[in-house]
Design a binder for these strands. Structure first.
Lengths: 281, 281
DNA sequence: TAAGATTTGTTCGTATGTATC
DNA sequence: GGATACATACGAACAAATCTT
């Protein structure tokens, strides 16, 4: 029983009234409503198509009308229709295929795609390691607490599989870096198991943000055997708690783990910052 | 000191993973160089333009080259260039203006825009009131705890202004609904004050999600004087805690408030569901 | 107020690449 | 390999918006 909870709606267009001229109406205003004739911008066309999707309760996998049919029914040119489809493709709502039987198909917006779009929002902001860990400490214990009572044996096996990538000490710097990434993958997998889609997405996004940030700041460039060992130890404890379906202890383990990781990451960040000051310009 | 923390990244396309050039790629390098003819998709063009932005450290407000210049330098047709710009506009990275001195300008991706894009990801998922409140309980107390010691008098005044919209009992059903929305606005404003951009965004997004969901489920359609009074009372207490810069009590107040609101929303949700079962087919 | 310049926005006709049969 | 159906790409001409004079 699919329930579309959110009305997609809403183009970003007219956000800021920073231009003080009281220009009114124009094609920009209420374009989406009466898209039958005349002023049709691609965004309005995209909204109209979305309305169709909602009205007809189309689901992922369903196909949209063909390009030339869209052009007919929307009374727009090919270029405009293409731009509208491009908008929807960028939003992750459709995918197009060429060839017979091809066309635009509705797709679920994957977490990956949504993360990439969301990451743009933080591009010009100053996100720090501290910010991310503040949230991981608040959310990941909650995540494993809810997971523990209902985690399946298959899931536990998958987690063990991820862990197997870094149970052995690394033999090279490159392997060290890969192990760090795999360690983060453990948490990414955890977040995918969440029954709360929002919680799962938030946790997964934080991991992604951390990965970008860590790589960007080269925090993973140098070995840190202590962090690795403690990380593995905590994750093994967590698996044990999962096996006994012990929610409370899973939560406690994750909380301790997160706080320890936070301390170490911040310390490392500070060291690197100092290093830059010493050696750099 | 702006620090771009994230590599912007990532088209969803599955076809051609172009050259894995790092962030230090020059303007010339990239997709356009190799494929002057034939193989140039708008997405690749958009990525190339993003690479330019990074390489030249362009910031919000800066202007991109004009359309015809892009066409020249990228060796693509007008339609393709336009589609590429449309992609970036959809992602919220640029805004275009017509007329002399017009063109494509780099913009920060607003929280509103990012929220709208992210909401698409949850469109086909079953997000419930319970899911949202689980996260609000985890995050909003954290938010006000960090806010309390450093909240400004202006901010307190703004919060009072928002509250003034619903301190009086509503005189009509319509006013009742507007008051509920204003009450949510209180939390949206709070989230904007956060020094942690990720925490702020998460809290704001939850409010948005809740608003859509509540409207969708008609939870706000019927009066609920108890919820209103308790909400106002809690918010007044919170303002008091802000005035004394008491972080701990701000956190405690918000936690109690969130749990109370959760109980009431879930109860209301259940009632409505029952009502549907009774009256509906 | 009005005309002109500049730049994006839209449309159309046509050609080409690509996947299926 | 050929035919078909479909998206993808190109370029010229026109329309609309906005700034300047």
């Amino acid at each position: 029983m699919k329930q579309p909870v959110i009305i997609p709606t809403k183009a970003p267009t007219e956000s800021e009234p920073d231009s003080p001229n009281g220009k009114s109406a124009g094609p920009g205003a209420g374009a989406a409503a009466g898209a039958s004739k005349g002023r049709n911008r691609p965004l309005a066309v995209a909204e109209t198509i979305k309305d169709w999707i909602i009205a007809q309760s189309l689901e992922p996998g369903d196909r949209l009308p063909q390009e030339h049919q869209l052009i007919e029914r929307l009374e727009v040119s090919k270029g405009t229709a293409r731009e509208a489809l491009k908008v929807m493709e960028t939003q992750g709502l459709i995918r197009t295929r060429t060839g017979p039987g091809g066309g635009a198909f509705i797709t679920e917006v994957s977490a990956d795609h949504a993360s990439a779009l969301l990451a743009n929002h933080f591009f010009f902001k100053d996100v720090s390691i501290a910010h991310i860990y503040e949230l991981r400490i608040a959310l990941e214990p909650q995540l494993v607490q809810e997971l523990a009572p209902r985690v399946t044996n298959d899931q536990i096996a998958e987690l063990r599989g991820v862990m197997s990538a870094y149970t052995r000490p690394p033999t090279s710097i490159e392997e060290e870096r890969l192990q760090r990434v795999a360690e983060l993958e453990f948490h990414a997998v955890l977040s995918r198991y969440s029954r709360n889609p929002v919680l799962g997405f938030f946790c997964g996004f934080l991991v992604r943000l951390l990965k970008d940030l860590a790589v960007c700041k080269r925090i993973y460039d140098e070995p840190n055997p202590e962090l690795r060992e403690r990380g593995v130890s905590y994750q093994e404890q967590l698996i044990e708690a999962f096996e006994t379906r012990d929610a409370e202890s899973a939560r406690a383990i994750m909380e301790v783990h997160m706080r320890a990781a936070q301390r170490m990451m911040l310390q490392r960040e500070a060291e690197i910052a100092k290093g830059f000051l010493d050696t750099d310009s």
